[in-house]
């Protein structure tokens, strides 16, 4: 190949690559699509945090909205610490949050009254130009779990009882848990729990693997993780009420609400009303234990509830 031809080839390849790259899709935001007849010209950008339940929930809402004629896009975030600021700065339009934890994140103090928590949350979101729609019946609270053997060996059934053996135990949780008031920090302040060490493990099966192999003795779980029942794990009782009621609640930007039309709010609320704690626990199990895909699981659920 002569030199000129070589240069041309390189240039052509580069141009092609840049063109393809411009078509997008190189970073992990997938695109949904809207269905047929009542196609509106509005795109909903749904943010979700990187764990199974969020994948499922965002899909359920997203698919229902697509059915109602909206175009849907998804954006993945590593944690609330990244997702909330992005919502506030307008990078996307809607996030399925958890009322109590989000309230704490925004500086509030949740009580055990779920209705009160929602009101307080709305107040905190107001100055950010965001509002909360209806809460779903499902509540996914943080849960501290141990294996049956572990719980028996250290005679621990409640979080208060955990304080004593804690310095001998290793705690596994997603990295963001370490400094959160609703998580490890809160456990230290409210219960005086100081573990031997903290291992940052992404939410999901990897963390449970560590628990079952005794590489960690205590794990942060979500109350809706299907694995808890499957592996007979013990959820320690939150006797001092550290973990707030955490109903799933869609939080949406006000500027989006005004251009989205009435259909949007009613569709979202309709979806919220259908999701119970039992439902989501079962769906989580399908994804985490059976390795089913979140979108498929969401689709089946949404169909069964007449949402799509």
């Amino acid at each position: 190949m002569t030199l000129t031809r070589r240069w041309t080839t390189v240039a052509a390849l580069l141009a092609l690559s840049l063109a393809l790259a411009a078509c997008g899709g190189l970073s992990s935001s997938d695109n949904g699509s809207s269905s047929g007849s009542n196609s509106k010209n509005v795109t909903v950008r749904i943010g979700w945090v990187d764990f199974s339940e969020q994948a499922i929930l965002s899909q359920i809402y997203g698919q229902a909205l697509a059915k109602a004629g909206y175009k849907v896009e998804y954006q993945k975030y590593a944690s609330r610490e990244l997702a909330d600021p992005a919502l506030f700065s307008g990078k996307y339009d809607m996030l399925i949050e958890y009322a109590g934890s989000d309230l704490t994140f925004l500086g509030g103090k949740p009580t055990s009254d779920a209705q009160q928590v929602l009101t307080d949350l709305k107040a905190k979101l107001q100055p950010k130009g965001v509002t909360a729609l209806d809460q779903a019946p499902m509540s996914d609270q943080q849960a501290i779990t141990m294996t049956q053997q572990g719980s028996t060996k250290y005679s621990v059934k409640t979080l208060s009882e955990l304080a004593k053996p804690a310095p001998q135990l290793v705690f596994g949780a997603p990295p963001e848990c370490k400094d959160r008031q609703t998580c490890y920090k809160g456990m230290q302040d409210t219960y005086g729990i100081h573990f031997k060490s903290f291992k940052g493990l992404a939410q999901g099966s990897l963390k449970y693997q560590a628990l079952l192999n005794n590489q960690i003795q205590v794990a942060l779980s979500f109350s809706t993780d299907g694995i808890i029942a499957k592996q007979n794990l013990v959820t320690l009782q939150d006797d001092k009420g550290l973990f707030p009621p955490d109903h799933a609640v869609p939080v949406v930007r006000n500027d989006f609400l005004s251009k989205a039309g009435n259909d949007f709010q009613s569709t979202v609320n309709k979806v919220s009303a259908t999701i119970t704690t039992n439902d989501i626990t079962g769906l989580n199990a399908k994804v985490d234990i059976d390795n089913d895909d979140p979108d498929q699981v969401a689709k089946d659920f949404a169909s069964s509830k007449g949402l799509v």
Binding site: A78, S79, L82, P175, D179, K199, G200, L201, Q215
Partner: peptide, 20 residues
């Protein structure tokens, strides 16, 4: 190794990425 909880300097990076 930070991804599989074996410690090391990578944990500062992965933990930091998770919470910005």
């Amino acid at each position: 190794g930070a991804l599989v909880a074996t410690g090391g300097l990578g944990t500062f990076i992965t933990d930091g990425l998770a919470v910005s």
